[in-house]
Simulated assay, not measured.
Amino acid sequence: MNSEKETFQSKNDISKSLYYRFSQFVGFLLGARFFVAALLTFALYVSTFFLFNQDESFRNFVFDFKVHGIIFCTVLTILAGGIINQFYDLEKDHVVKPFRTRIQSFIKQKYFLYAYLGLSFISLGVAWLISHNVFIFFVVYQFFMWLYSHKLSRVLIVNNLTFVSLTLYPFFGMMVYYETFSKKVFLMAVFLFLILLCIDIVKDTLTKSVDKAFGYTTIPNYFKTKNTKIILTALLIITMIVSMKIITRTGVSGFMAYYFAGGLFVMIFCVYLLFNSSRKSNFLTLNILRIWVFIGIIAMLLNGIESKF
């Protein structure tokens, strides 16, 4: 009888241990924003090969280890940035994201900091092996990632502009690497910048009171609801104008042409939702814009496959 109890207790201890380890693993993935990093990696590969890389064959691209090294450093930097951001936003996240912070609580904060330092040093080490210019590029990237989390995320307007700029920074690096400077690429970059800016501002409307309580000066809690709607509407209208410029002036075709044309209706629908003063409509607007960015990546992939293969 005692033997059976001991066996049962042993199995129970093992299951608890596995649950604890699994919770630690999931907590680390959430803390490092792993899924965001995965999406950005996919977007980087798609945009690099199908937009910035105009002449190189697929075979040469696959064996261009310098490009893979740069993207690898980018992924590590994004993971490190996610960790340091959650470290500084921990109190706010307890209110805004209680489930995620509960999962993350299985890992002590000091281990997140160790992971941050480890990822940062590995990224810089690989960057140094690639070239000194790439090393400087990532030193600047990591510095502003830390500065944003430590200070800039609390500064009005600067917080939104810095967040979007840091999101697009790796794409800018690839554009410089391939020396792909054209009107088409510039307008697409402006389009993406505006959409990401709208996403960040709409996201701030959902955490308005919490941001104010924890000292984050955002557009919604400084300019109030009515003026925030006007700002977002103006940004969406400018985004529509940029979309029309891309369609009519850059010769974009195929799936990308359908994407930018369809985007006009998406933006109009988002404007309609913004003037429905409810948290649900803001949440819907946020997710529509996020999905539209993802659809843009898929459209670029399909358009590139159609043209290159």
Rank of each mutant, 00 (worst) to 15 (best):
I199V: 14
I199S: 08
D200Y: 08
D200P: 00
D200G: 10
I201Y: 01
I201P: 02
V202R: 06
V202S: 03
K203V: 01
D204I: 04
D204V: 04
T207W: 09
K208T: 13
S209P: 03
S209I: 13
S209Q: 15
V210F: 11
D211K: 00
K212N: 09
K212I: 05
A213H: 15
A213T: 14
A213P: 02
F214M: 11
F214K: 00
G215R: 13
G215P: 10
G215A: 06
Y216V: 07
T217N: 11
T218G: 04
T218I: 05
I219R: 00
I219Q: 00
I219L: 15
P220E: 13
P220K: 01
P220M: 08
N221M: 04
N221C: 13
N221E: 13
Y222G: 07
Y222D: 14
Y222C: 07
Y222W: 12
F223D: 03
K224G: 10
K224A: 09
K226A: 12
K226H: 14
K226L: 13
N227V: 13
T228A: 02
T228L: 04
T228G: 05
K229C: 09
K229L: 14
K229H: 08
I230Y: 11
I231M: 07
L232K: 02
L232Y: 10
L232G: 00
T233F: 14
A234D: 13
L235H: 01
L236Y: 06
L236V: 03
I237R: 05
I237D: 01
S243D: 12
S243Q: 10
K245W: 00
K245L: 14
K245Q: 12
K245H: 03
I246Q: 02
I247A: 02
I247F: 01
T248H: 09
R249N: 09
R249A: 06
G251V: 06
G251L: 07
G251T: 10
G251W: 02
S253C: 10
F255S: 14
M256G: 03
M256N: 10
M256H: 01
A257Y: 11
A257Q: 12
Y258Q: 14
Y258E: 15
Y258L: 15
Y258K: 13
Y258N: 15
Y259W: 09
Y259G: 08
Y259D: 06
F260W: 03
F260Y: 14
F260D: 02
F260N: 06
F260C: 05
F260Q: 04
A261C: 02
G262V: 11
G262Q: 04
G263I: 03
G263M: 06
G263T: 00
L264G: 08
L264M: 08
F265K: 02
F265V: 13
V266A: 12
M267L: 12
I268Q: 10
V271S: 03
Y272F: 12
L274I: 02
L274H: 05
L274P: 07
F275E: 08
F275M: 00
F275D: 06
N276A: 05
S278L: 08
S278P: 09
K280Y: 03
N282A: 05
N282I: 00
F283R: 09
F283M: 09
F283Y: 04
F283I: 01
L284F: 05
T285M: 11
N287V: 09
N287Q: 10
I288Y: 01
I288E: 02
I288P: 06
I291L: 10
I291S: 13
F294M: 09
